[in-house]
Amino acid sequence: MYKFGKINSYEGILDLKKIVKDVDIEEMEEALNICDLSVLAKKYKTWLKHMPRVKPYYAVKCNDDAVVVKELAKLGTGFDCASKNEIKLALEAGANPEEIIFANPCKPASHLQYAKEKKIMTSTVDTEFEIYKIFEHYPESNLVIRFRCEAKVAQCPLGDKFGCDAEEDAAALMLLAKSLGLAVIGTSFHVGSGCSDYPAYNRAIATAKSLFKFGQLLGFEMKIMDIGGGFPGADDSKFATVSEIVSASLDKYFPDDDVEIIAEPGRFFVASAYTLVCKIHAKREIRSGKKADLKMYYINDGVYGSLNCVLYDHQKVTVEHFLDDDDNLKKFKSLIWGPTCDALDKIIEETYLPNLSCGDLVAFPNMGAYTVPIASPFNGFLVPKTLYFKSV
């Protein structure tokens, strides 16, 4: 029998049908996350194959499950942390302080003091106010200047909130740091989460090169370039395409090994590691005459739970069923709702499924990114439990 809170082992291929049958999920109130930790090792291997020069610093905000973070620490990733609690989580997972970047450009002073206590030396900034704050609370920090270079197409654009103007502000921030006796050691950017404009990486790396030259003129030891995140999580062919662009740009603008290149992947590692299994607890048919034009299914998780990615991450989720003989089953236009009383709790507007019944199960693959940390028990509905698996 599978155990919650433990890592269950398996051989060969993870069999979802067998798992949900053995767990008897139909008797559970909450939905079930099935996490395959072996995916993390596969993704790390893929990363090293395509971008061996770039060290991944996992973006903890993407999925802060302690089991996942610990597994990534064992693999050898660094960590991109945005708060003292994320720093604490990474350290407890086994990360060394030098493998953590405090990458939130707008840090509460108490979090900065915690970083000082834990000797987290590298900190991202993008305003003069943040530089003055660091000067007051942690002047020993090594600063990384974050500039804005956003993709034209991204799932979650970030440029409106973070990043200074590379031409107007970045040089001024370096001069300010110099006047205060602070150390600038590099630059960072983030093209946007879920980027689809891959040449944006080339534009940003070219800009970083210019800023490196200016920093060196000021006497700074410019030794770190952070290329941020935005890497696809469930499509390794797209990741290979991104990697080619990044690698070519690095060869052109940063050919020497004296600069450490890091990145902040989140969804790349964890998106495909999770499958969410839900139970249909109610059903409605919209009819015109005797014909059912639309079948509505109400399940035990929704946009206020794990499927918050539909609202907050702009994700287009896909759904699968567990009925046999899928090729010969008649499909019907279907709409899937979450369990709460809010009409915004709509998961999929239109999909085609067989005629399902109350008590049947459905699965949502690629549910590891920006889901678990944001889930809430709104309206009294429980957040999913998680079963962990790892191949032997």
Rank of each mutant, 00 (worst) to 15 (best):
L211Q: 11
K279M: 06
T318S: 14
D251T: 14
K295L: 12
G233W: 00
S243T: 07
A208F: 01
D235V: 02
D313M: 14
D251E: 15
V303D: 05
A206D: 04
Q216N: 15
F322N: 06
S272N: 01
S243Q: 05
K316V: 11
A273C: 10
F220Q: 09
A273L: 01
G229E: 06
G338P: 07
T207M: 11
F322C: 04
A271S: 07
S243P: 02
P339A: 11
D251P: 04
G229T: 06
V270C: 00
D257E: 09
C309E: 06
S247A: 04
C278D: 01
G305K: 07
G219F: 10
S210E: 15
D313W: 12
N328Q: 11
D301R: 09
S306I: 01
V246G: 05
K316H: 08
A204F: 03
S243E: 04
A208N: 06
S334F: 01
Y297K: 13
A248E: 14
E260M: 08
V259D: 08
I280Q: 02
F254N: 04
R203G: 03
A248T: 09
F214K: 15
C309H: 01
D256H: 08
I299A: 12
T275A: 00
F254T: 02
D325A: 11
D236Y: 06
F212W: 12
P255V: 12
D258M: 06
Y274A: 00
V310T: 10
K283E: 05
D327A: 14
K209V: 06
G230F: 04
K213P: 07
F322Y: 12
E260C: 10
K295V: 13
K213C: 12
D301K: 09
S210F: 11
G305Y: 06
K223L: 10
R267T: 13
I336V: 13
F332T: 03
H281I: 00
D326K: 13
S247M: 02
K283V: 07
I261Y: 11
M296K: 15
F322K: 09
F332W: 11
N300H: 11
G302L: 13
A292P: 02
V317E: 05
P265Q: 01
D293S: 05
D327S: 14
Q216E: 15
I261Q: 12
Y304L: 12
E221F: 10
D257I: 02
G230Q: 07
I286Q: 02
Y312V: 04
E244G: 15
L294H: 07
P255C: 12
G233T: 00
I245D: 07
K213E: 15
A234M: 08
E264V: 04
P265F: 09
F332L: 03
D327H: 09
S243K: 01
K223R: 15
S288W: 09
V310C: 06
P232D: 05
S334M: 04
L276K: 00
I224W: 10
F268G: 00
A204L: 11
A208I: 06
I336L: 11
M296E: 14
I205H: 04
L250F: 08
